[in-house]
Design a protein around this nucleic acid. Sequence first.
DNA 1: CGATATTGATCTGAAAACATATCATCATTC
DNA 2: GAATGATGATATGTTTTCAGATCAATATCG
Lengths: 101, 101
Amino acid sequence: MPETDSLHTIGAQLRRARLAAELTQEQVAELAGISRPRYRDIETGAAAARATTLMNVARALGLEMMLIPQFLVPAVDALLSPEAGEDAPAFAPQPEPDDER
Amino acid sequence: MPETDSLHTIGAQLRRARLAAELTQEQVAELAGISRPRYRDIETGAAAARATTLMNVARALGLEMMLIPQFLVPAVDALLSPEAGEDAPAFAPQPEPDDER
DNA sequence: CGATATTGATCTGAAAACATATCATCATTC
DNA sequence: GAATGATGATATGTTTTCAGATCAATATCG
């Protein structure tokens, strides 16, 4: 069970959110403060991002990274399933200046 | 808002889950397949883990990493609030968030 | 057709996450 | 007080993420 599966799952989720928001890879990368090639690798599952990078990318797409107790995952999935694909309502791409260096 | 806040938030969450499970840092590190110093840095928020590493750590603690649409975060938080986290009965006694419909 | 936009891909080099080893601190317990 | 166990911390070296640049493939459109 290579963790490449997890990477592809995350990437697919990001891609769906990105297309739903009608953003290009470059725009998401810009919002998340990373380069386009890097975002491409994350979205295609070619490479793992850092936790902080993934959080920035997720927020740029109107998503939030959360740690859920495993026994509550079904309940959360139930919350997600009905309106998972809702065309994004008020989603505010904030410039989010971050990433020290 | 530096992302060190995010790291501390995640770390605190991991620590709470670890103590609830009565595991040592070394045991969690072993379960997650990383070294103890590395897990310590993650738990204390001293350093960011890779997304894959964070997922392995989370699973070792009975947690699952999920990407939640931001507008659903309050609902998920409500699910988590009662007694998030430890000795898990097969299903949670949900206090029925008196949410209208 | 030619121009533009989006995405896929590769290369170089720097920065950060990793392992491993070692030592310090602070409890607890004998 | 000495021994044990858990945690904090530092140092060295390897691996991987990252930026930035560049080029190719595939649309889409005037």
